[in-house]
Design a protein around this nucleic acid. Structure first.
Lengths: 338, 338
DNA sequence: CGGAAGCATCGAAGCGCTTCGATGTACAGT
DNA sequence: ACTGTACATCGAAGCGCTTCGATGCTTCCG
């Protein structure tokens, strides 16, 4: 591997000159610059990452901590991760993939070793044990998700409260008065992952305003769980005519089971999903849905982080406004007559 | 941040001694070792990654190149990535996440800069443009997937030929004579991703031996595509009683459409899927399937790579033997009478 | 026309670690 | 008692880069 010194010699300049050509931190005459660039190309020179990190105390790496469990929202997580990686590259950063497994230790390790300049945390819990560490370090970080206390932190997330409200609003407008919410698996609520609870809050407070009744039921993925859940719901609230589903894995089972019960969508019941657009479009009924903007979240997170690294950053919460796309799974509530 | 030198001073030894305590490359008396370890703990010392990389020319980082497109097998990709990350950690490595976007350039960049010690490539095409680069460098690498020419490369993959054969075998044994294969989206075949074609080869050659007819149809995800595809298949080969599906997104649509056509599973038609177990279990019919062992592939890849890094490695191809799990979606072929 | 100001470049120090002799000590074998 | 060997530790060099003065030139202005 060619070194800076070799490039310098080849171009007939000193090492520092080459360095300044590379970084642009001092003015270099055009002639010299071109000559150096030529040498770099001829020798196939790539700066050594370790040396660079050591000398500049910047690794140009962003750590991304993904949840270990792959029990929910996997495609969303993946999409975020890919968006983070590609956006980071456009800013000159690479991405280090950490799993949640190590927990707070990973944060310590990465911060302490200077392996990464900054980090992005996904799947943040309301009272996440990694947060004190983040607050206690001067290493910039961005959370994807919202903990209970956001002071001193930068967060990016979909506005799930507004999302919940939007779903209710849409259904209420169509005349639905009894709405059932099919949520994530119970484990998600027990873990106090913020988004699930926030959606529920938005759903409920909006329902109160609109005079709509809401029944919430967590539900694991798959047909068996859904079957039990649906039966209970219809038993408890036979008048239910609107469904809000926040659980990718429950979408298709729900549709199939409704069909099986002789309930037509959207004639008899309406369904609104909170899921990636792809899922909404590929379902057996094209679903009215609020999209989870995975790419946008990833991109935003990186951009916030880079801003912080450049000293332009501020601590604050960015909530992405939800957008509801009407497709063919929602319609007017059936009249009392029918 | 504490440095090696500070730890050394605190423990009353020289810097090199601390280094040897850390690396274990020379014998250190127990007394000294304990004293040093104590100092490390007290000062909260973490070795600086950049300095380490520079001095040792080892970054302890493995690069993982994931496909940019998230149009297929996303959960599998994610699971592999997570398995790679966790396995790598147990061997003292971190994982750098690269997307396919940069293509060969990423390989050059990482190799040239010493950012990573080795790399793992996913979603390898039959004639992948990154391969010449890998062959031309002495940086160890492992492919997940199988290119056309594996010479000089280490590869890990599910044995998709055997997988295809296994599916046909199972259906043939149950008396099915006309089998339809529902494949990945056409784009996957056009890209010459190896696994799809290899499955087909296995399927066909086994079918020949068993005197079974096979009709292969690529198919995009979603209901509309599946609906068209299924109609064509039943039109062309009305006697079709067995289906092999290698496309997660087509599984549920197929089951729903079969139901709609009045075809009961497994009484009238049998379905074998090639998909992760989770999908097979959560489908509306518990599917007989050949699992895609994502975790195992990720783990294997890392272990091969670490072996190479330790000088114990060899170039070869590891094909994981497929396992077919019988669930409730396959049964005896309907007799001619019925 | 002298000094201030800017430009283009160089040299050297130093980032924090690893690693290779070298050195000093203790003990075994002869 | 003396050499040989193994053990425990130290000092110094060096990994490849960034960055801070310093230096020699031009150019400009009063």
């Amino acid at each position: 591997m060619a070194t800076l010194a070799e490039v310098a010699q080849h171009a007939g300049v000193s090492a520092s000159t080459v360095s300044y050509v590379l970084s642009g931190k001092r003015t270099i005459s055009t002639a010299t610059r071109l000559r150096v660039e030529q040498s770099i190309r001829e020798l196939g020179y790539h700066p050594n990452a370790g040396a660079r990190a050591l000398a500049s105390s910047r690794s140009n790496i962003i750590a991304l901590m993904v949840p270990l469990r792959t029990d929910m929202y996997v495609p969303v997580m993946m999409e975020i991760a890919v968006a983070v990686a590609t956006t980071a590259r456009t800013h000159g950063y690479d991405v280090l993939l950490l799993t949640g497994e190590e927990g707070p230790d990973a944060v310590r390790r990465v911060t302490g070793s200077g392996l990464a300049d900054a980090m992005i945390l996904m799947d943040v819990e309301l009272d996440d044990e990694r947060l004190p560490l983040l607050r206690g370090t001067d290493q910039p970080s961005v959370l994807i998700g919202l903990p209970a206390d956001t002071s001193g932190l930068t967060c990016v997330d979909l506005d799930f409260e507004a999302t919940g409200a939007l779903c209710v609003e849409h259904l209420a407008m169509l005349g639905h008065r009894d709405i059932a919410v099919i949520g994530e698996a119970p484990a998600v609520y027990e873990r106090h992952t913020g988004f699930a609870e926030r959606t529920l809050d938005g759903l409920r407070s909006r329902a109160r305003k609109s005079g709509v009744r809401v029944l919430h039921r967590p539900c694991g993925g798959g047909y068996d769980a859904m079957s039990v859940t649906l039966a209970r719901i219809l038993d408890e609230r036979p008048g239910t005519s609107g469904f809000v589903v926040q659980n990718e894995q429950a979408v298709e089972p729900l549709l199939a089971l409704l069909r099986q019960q002789g309930l037509a969508v959207p004639e008899d019941v309406s369904v609104v999903a909170v899921c990636p657009d792809q899922v909404a479009v590929q379902a057996s009924v094209r679903l009215t849905s609020v999209a989870i903007p995975a790419q946008e979240m990833g991109r935003h997170a990186v951009e916030r982080l880079v801003a912080k690294l450049d000293g332009r950053g501020t601590d604050d919460v960015v909530l992405i406004a939800p957008e509801l796309t009407v497709r063919t799974s929602t319609g007017p509530a059936p009249t009392a007559a029918s």
